[in-house]
Simulated assay, not measured.
Amino acid sequence: MGFHTFDVERADRLERPEVRYRWVSAEELIGPLVAADAGVVADLGSGTGFYTDDVAPHVERVYGVDVQTEMHDRYREKGVPENVELVASDVSDLPFADDELDGAFSTMTYHEFASDAAVAELARVIRSGGALVTFDWTADGDGADGPPVDERFAAADAVSALEREGFEVVSDSTRTETFAVVARAP
């Protein structure tokens, strides 16, 4: 699987609640972060901030992390909440101190950054016991929506990668086209 990003020219597609919430609801994303008392979190692959906006009212600070500054530009155009700071970075090289984050989340971007280096970096920057909430397109899906199946991972792949770095997987599930994994940092 190769590194790729979402086409900025299609960024307006990231702002469709009737489609986005079909695959990941705001409640199932926010719940594990609130349960872990996460005050400072990072949205990994934040794009135009669709889910960042959902999380922001429930935490002290959200870092919207994206490798594409053009996505940050799109987010600024629609308006960035006061407690959101935009960070241009790859997940495998985050500009945060050790244990700086109480949690992190990714929605439909794990397949874009999945690597041992990225998971190790998350283990470094999320405090012990902090939440990592991951939703992505599953390799077990039919590929009718999202990226091609050969660019996806199964939930078991994500679980294995996280456990190798010491994360404790709290829950994992596979749905029709997506998977969900909630884990605690080592």
Rank of each mutant, 00 (worst) to 15 (best):
V59F: 04
E60S: 10
E60R: 08
V62N: 08
V62H: 08
Y63E: 06
Y63M: 07
G64T: 02
G64S: 15
G64A: 15
G64I: 01
G64P: 00
G64N: 12
V65W: 06
V65S: 02
D66P: 00
V67H: 08
V67Y: 11
Q68I: 06
Q68V: 09
Q68N: 11
Q68A: 14
T69E: 14
T69S: 10
E70T: 08
E70D: 14
E70Y: 00
M71Q: 06
D73R: 11
D73E: 15
R74V: 10
R74N: 08
Y75F: 13
R76E: 13
E77C: 07
E77Q: 15
E77R: 14
K78I: 15
G79V: 01
V80E: 11
V80M: 06
P81A: 09
E82G: 13
N83C: 05
N83L: 05
L86C: 03
A88T: 14
D90W: 07
V91M: 03
V91N: 02
S92I: 01
D93K: 14
P95L: 05
P95A: 09
F96Q: 02
A97W: 05
D99E: 12
D99M: 01
D99R: 08
E100F: 09
E100K: 00
L101N: 01
L101M: 07
L101A: 05
D102W: 02
D102H: 03
D102F: 03
G103D: 02
A104Q: 02
F105N: 00
F105M: 00
T107K: 04
M108L: 15
M108S: 13
M108G: 07
M108V: 12
Y110P: 09
H111T: 15
E112R: 08
F113E: 04
F113T: 05
F113V: 07
A114G: 05
A114W: 09
S115Q: 12
D116C: 04
D116Y: 07
A117H: 09
A117E: 15
A118L: 05
V119T: 13
A120L: 08
A120Q: 11
A120Y: 07
L122M: 08
L122P: 01
L122R: 04
L122I: 05
L122C: 01
A123G: 10
A123V: 05
A123Q: 01
R124E: 01
V125F: 11
V125N: 00
I126P: 00
R127G: 13
R127S: 11
R127Q: 12
S128L: 03
S128P: 08
S128I: 00
G129Q: 07
G129L: 06
G129R: 06
G129T: 03
G129V: 02
G130V: 01
A131K: 02
L132I: 01
L132Y: 03
L132M: 02
T134A: 11
T134Q: 06
F135I: 04
F135W: 14
F135K: 06
F135P: 13
W137F: 12
W137M: 03
T138Q: 10
A139K: 14
A139H: 09
D140Y: 10
D140T: 12
D140H: 12
G141P: 09
D142Y: 12
G143M: 07
A144P: 11
D145L: 03
D145Q: 13
G146P: 15
G146N: 10
G146R: 07
P148W: 04
P148R: 14
V149I: 14
V149T: 14
D150P: 08
E151I: 09
E151D: 15
